[in-house]
């Protein structure tokens, strides 16, 4: 494990850890608002910001932060208006941002390879200054996402209720947009602008396969995101002797593998919940006894037991059998 004694590797691990925590934290709120692709849109806009930095010779990180925040606020305002088609507005920003970035990079005489560091991540070349910025910004994102969870949850769940309750809905919505933009630029060096949305969304999708509450979804997504980013980086470092594996794609694919592993479990749980959902509390129209019934139903008989008003129906072969005295009724 001498690899981990290199300073560049330690820096990369710190960056991966902080990105893995912050991206799913804010991503949970984006998924809750059904805006899973917003991170992707901001990422595309940030490309222009990076190119602007390269062109003017200032730090691409800071120009990306500024442009990404402007783009995210613009998207939020478009969404708030609600009149124009939000999808189309997002698409315009996507392609405008990407095309603008590539054009500006060319104008500045920079090679495409320089831009590629930001598009797909270059976590092992991260500088000491960048690592400090990453840590501070990621910490701010995590603190806001966790500390303001009750408010952000209420607004994303029911905006009108939140407004009547006196929350400053617009300010919180803009805060989410700004935090998402900050996260995108934080994750830019880790997984790259084109893959950043994956780290914001995939851990959340994995977490909600198994959880029933918002809190556990948020917490599990942050754990899964950290595991994927640290794990992906480690994997790519371990095989670096025999093959060239870029850390960014490795992190995203590991995260997706986690989703694929939990999806069947989630699908089975949902199927089971549907089977066991209570029947409507109405008494059957007439009293209908079953044919002679050799089997005794009970908690351990193996048939699905479904709540039905004040009793339980046992479901088998398309029938619903309810205990009635010494026989069973068809319900």
């Amino acid at each position: 494990m001498e690899l981990f004694t290199y300073e560049f590797m330690q820096r990369a691990l710190i960056a991966a850890l902080f990105t893995g925590l912050a991206a799913p934290a804010i991503g949970t709120y984006l998924v809750q608002r059904r805006m899973a692709l917003m991170g992707d849109g901001i990422g595309h806009v940030a490309v222009t910001g990076v190119a602007l930095g390269l062109l003017t010779g200032t730090s691409p990180t800071w120009t990306a932060v500024v442009v990404a925040i402007l783009g995210a606020v613009a998207m939020e305002l478009v969404r708030e208006r609600g009149h124009t088609n939000g999808d189309v507005a997002l698409a315009l920003l996507f392609y405008g941002g990407l095309a603008g970035g590539v054009l500006l990079t060319g104008l500045g005489g920079q090679s495409a390879a320089r831009l590629q560091e930001y598009l797909f991540g270059a976590i092992t070349t991260i500088s000491l200054g960048d690592i400090l910025v990453t840590m501070v910004l990621a910490a701010v994102v995590v603190l806001c996402a966790v500390g303001l969870a009750p408010q952000l949850f209420a607004i994303a769940h029911d905006q009108e209720f939140a407004r009547v309750a006196g929350l400053r809905v617009r300010a919180y919505n803009l805060l989410v947009a700004v935090l998402a933009a900050v996260t995108v630029t934080v994750a830019m060096r880790t997984v790259g602008l084109l893959l950043v949305s994956a780290l914001m969304v995939v851990p959340v999708a994995t977490a909600q396969q198994l959880s029933r509450t918002f809190r556990t979804t948020l917490a599990a997504a942050m754990v899964l995101g950290t595991a994927a980013s640290v794990g992906g980086l480690t994997l790519s470092a371990l095989v670096s002797g025999s093959a060239t594996v870029a850390p960014g794609p490795a992190i995203v694919l590991l995260s997706l593998a986690g989703f694929l592993a939990t999806w069947p479990v989630g699908a089975w749980l949902r199927h089971r919940a549907r089977l066991r959902a209570p029947f409507v509390e109405l008494d059957p129209a007439d009293h209908l006894e079953t044919d002679p019934h050799p089997h005794d139903h009970g908690p351990a008989c193996g048939h699905v037991a479904v709540e039905h008003g004040d009793h339980v129906d046992y479901v088998h072969d398309g029938h619903r059998h309810a205990v009635h005295g010494r026989h069973y009724d068809e319900h």
Binding site: T28, V31, Q32, R33, R34, A36, L148, P150, Q151, F153, A154, A156, H157, D158, F161, A162, A165, G166, L167, V204, Q208, S211, R212, T213, F214, R215, T217
Partner: peptide, 21 residues
């Protein structure tokens, strides 16, 4: 919403009128 929420969590958001940040 896109993320699961428990009955308790939804009802708890009704307390926001009385909770401090």
């Amino acid at each position: 919403s896109g993320v699961p929420a428990s009955v308790w969590e939804v009802v708890a958001s009704g307390r926001l009128t009385r909770r401090r940040l």
